[in-house]
Amino acid sequence: MTKKEKGKLGSKREWQKRKILILFLTIPMLFLLYFTVYPIITMFYYSFTDWKGSVSPYDFVGIYNYKNIFTTESYRNVFVTAGYYLLAGLLQQVISLFLAVLMNKKLRGSGFFKGVIFFPFIMNGVAVAMAFRMFYQIGGGLDTLMNFAGLGDYIKVWIGDPKTCNFALAFIFLWKNVGYSFLIYLGTMQSISSEYYDAAAIDGAGAWAMFKAITYPNIKMIVGLMATFSIVNSISVFDIPYVLTNGKNGTNSFSTTLIETAFSYNKYGQACAMAICMLLIAAIVMVFKNIVFKEENENTYE
């Protein structure tokens, strides 16, 4: 009897709680649906049409737009471009992991170094691209540095040369984002209890052994997450090629091509298909990451 009453009371209070929750959630949910879900659904719908923008009439063209992405040469090039950024993204993980391990030790002036490493990430992307434009221009920062180091013979027209152009741009991507993954890695490492390291030190473990047996297993999940991010980012990179080259000279990324297709050539349907394709790639990478790392997660508890 008492138990039942208690249950009733509890459910009443729970109902009250739920009512508040729903009230508070309604407005943000409406915003989310209207500004995120609804546009995506509309975009999906338009991706099957030859919509030319605003109120002009359109026809359904089936999967023609999707087929185009893989059969048109200038569109296909975005995957090549993404390769350069992916390379930079993976290199970025290695470098930032290395820096994070260094900074995790009690170094003198580590606060200063942390600031220096993180600073590029909080800078505006366009500003970074502008700064690098001066760095790469003929007689600019890089040329001066190379002359100083006696490498003057190897100087190229960095942005103008198709062989170096994508590397030059991908380097900016690497430089800008190292700070971000560095911060995430460092944060995770600092949450590892120092007792493990103390115990390992007593057992006589070296730095590499400590990293392999203590640090890495603890940050494995984050490594996976950051790798996923770098894949997704490498596909959607926008500000760097847009500001520096307008996507010319083989540097067009998914985003710059999408903008050009929609706004310069008025092929909104095609652009919607590209956006959906980008979304799908991101989703696939995420799902793949979840499968791979979930299994490993279970293994660690066995």
Partner: peptide, 8 residues
């Protein structure tokens, strides 16, 4: 000009 690619 030697660099015809850099934008703007």
């Amino acid at each position: 000009e030697p660099d015809v690619v850099t934008a703007d």
